[in-house]
Design a protein around this nucleic acid. Structure first.
Length: 319
DNA sequence: AATGTCTTCAACCGCCGCCGC
DNA sequence: GGCGGCGGCGGTTGAAGACAT
């Protein structure tokens, strides 16, 4: 019986199938992990039977992919991840699995939950439809730039932070490049209020994305690579069993492979034309003063944020 | 402390596409 | 082409914990 009160729902059995539903027990988890460690994953229905689990194949698959996989990553969604989710959702909509491909260790289910609990909540509070153009603009012109600011703010206080802001005179292009501790990098174009195409993975010490005059050097700990405690850490550390990856210790990778991401599909060709540049000054407070980075709030996370969003939403609804 | 309400997220459901027969 | 099994995906649910009153 764990802290989540598992077993409580297991009283529901399908009459003729005798299949178990509800929360998984620790015993079931270990059966599933052991079986996959020995035989690998896939063929979920037969896997379930062979492993002695009275679960549907789907249930086994879901439990493995969303919870037991050694590389699954839980915990708070970081600012960078929030930014990425907002950006990718603006491109692809509710294609959670596709979005999840670009957030290593995050599951489609988790991203979907994040969207529903955080993003949709604010749409509701703003009394507008989450799919409305107005709310999309709010995200694009308010939420995302603020996130970028907050990321920069965090990086400014971090040792050896390398977030870079650059201004190109003449074209008035202002952009920011952010490199995260797990080697993701992304750029944000304030002119277009878009992350554009320039995000991917840093493969070496320095990177200068194409079409950008921003040189980015690696940074340390812009965001802590959050590695939530695995439910069965001793299992994956090799103390209990280690046959899933026979040749190596099972640990949650702290550094992802250089080619972990495949951003090849991220083309902007099909994106709608960028909207006209916002007249808003992102760095200006309601009272006209300029925000210091330190005082920037985690947009969307508290009442103050909501008040600000509502003010901007009401006053600049046409952006 | 008790109760009610809200939030979170693991798990389920139904649909769809793919594949082998 | 039809059928059934399976895996994958997005939508939804509901229990448990957090928070408010």
């Amino acid at each position: 019986m764990d802290e989540k009160g598992r077993n409580l729902k297991n009283i529901n059995m399908e009459d003729e199938m005798d299949l178990k539903r509800g929360p998984w027990t620790a015993e079931e988890d270990f059966k599933l992990m052991n079986y996959i460690a020995t035989h690998g994953e896939g063929r979920w229905n037969s896997l379930s039977r062979c492993a002695g689990l009275q679960r549907t194949g789907k249930s086994c698959r879901l439990r493995w992919l969303n919870y037991l996989r050694p590389d699954v990553r839980r915990g708070n969604i970081t600012l960078e991840e929030q930014l990425l989710i907002l950006e990718l959702h603006s491109r692809w909509g509710n294609r959670w699995s596709k979005i999840a491909q670009y957030l290593p260790g995050r599951t489609d289910n988790e991203i979907k939950n994040y969207w529903r609990t955080r993003v949709q909540k604010h749409a509701k509070q703003l009394k507008c439809d989450v799919n409305s153009q107005q709310f999309k603009d709010t995200m694009k012109y308010l939420w995302m730039p603020r996130l970028v600011e907050r990321i920069q703010s965090a990086s400014a206080s971090a040792t050896a932070a390398t977030t870079t802001t650059t201004t190109t005179t003449g074209s008035a292009t202002t952009s920011s490049s952010i490199t995260t501790s797990n080697n993701q990098f992304m750029t944000y174009d304030y002119n277009n209020n878009s992350m554009g195409q320039q995000f991917g993975v840093v493969n070496n010490d320095y990177i200068k994305p194409e079409n950008s005059n921003v040189a980015v050097s690696p940074m340390s700990d812009l965001t802590e690579y959050y590695s939530a405690p695995n439910p069965y850490p001793e299992y994956y550390s090799g103390q209990v069993g280690n046959s899933y990856y026979p040749d190596q210790e099972l640990v949650v990778p702290q550094m992802l492979p250089d080619n972990y991401f495949d951003y090849s599909g991220l083309l902007d060709e099909d994106l709608p034309a960028m909207q006209e540049q916002s007249n808003l000054n992102w760095f200006e407070n309601i009272d006209g003063t300029t925000s210091s980075s330190d005082s920037l709030w985690n947009i969307g996370e508290n009442d103050e944020d909501l008040w600000f969003l509502q003010q901007q939403f009401n006053n600049n609804g046409n952006f």
